[in-house]
Amino acid sequence: MFTTSWTASPQSPSEGFTPNWSRAGFWRQSLRQVVRLSAGGGRVRVRLSHAYGTSPVRVAGASMGLSAGGAGVRPGSLVRLTFAGAGEAAIPARGEIVSDDVPLAVAAGDSVTVTLYFEAATGPATFHAQAFAPGYRGAGDLTEDAGGAGFDAVSESWYFLSAVETDAGRADAVALFGDSITDGFGSTTGADRRWSDALAGRTGRPVLNAGIGGNLLLNDSAWYGEKGVHRLRRDVLDHPGVDTLVVLLGLNDIGFSETDEQPTYHPAPVVEAAELIAGHRELLRQARAAGVRVIGATLLPFAGSDHWGEHAAKVGHELNEWIRCSGEYDAVADLNRALADPADPDRLRPAYDFGDHLHPNDTGYEVMAEVVAATL
Rank of each mutant, 00 (worst) to 15 (best):
G70L: 11
A71Q: 04
R74Q: 15
G76K: 08
R80A: 15
L81F: 07
F83V: 00
A84P: 00
A84D: 15
A84Y: 05
G85R: 02
G85V: 04
A86I: 03
A89C: 13
P92A: 01
G95D: 09
V98D: 07
D100P: 00
D101Q: 14
D101P: 04
P103K: 07
P103Q: 10
L104T: 01
A105C: 13
A105R: 15
V106Q: 06
A108C: 14
G109L: 07
V112Y: 00
T113D: 09
T115G: 08
T115L: 13
A120H: 14
A120G: 12
A121R: 13
T122Y: 06
T122M: 10
G123L: 13
F127N: 02
F127M: 08
H128Y: 10
A129Y: 14
P134L: 10
G135S: 15
G138A: 13
A139V: 13
G140Y: 09
T143D: 06
T143L: 13
E144I: 06
G147A: 14
G148E: 08
A153V: 06
V154N: 09
S155G: 15
W158A: 03
E165D: 12
T166H: 03
D167W: 08
R170G: 04
A171H: 13
D172I: 04
A173C: 11
A173Y: 00
G186Y: 05
T188P: 07
G190A: 10
A191V: 14
A191I: 12
R193E: 13
R194I: 06
D197K: 00
D197H: 00
A198K: 00
A198E: 11
L199A: 04
L199V: 05
A200D: 01
G201V: 04
T203C: 12
G204P: 04
R205H: 13
P206M: 08
V207A: 12
V207H: 06
L208Q: 03
A210R: 00
G211P: 03
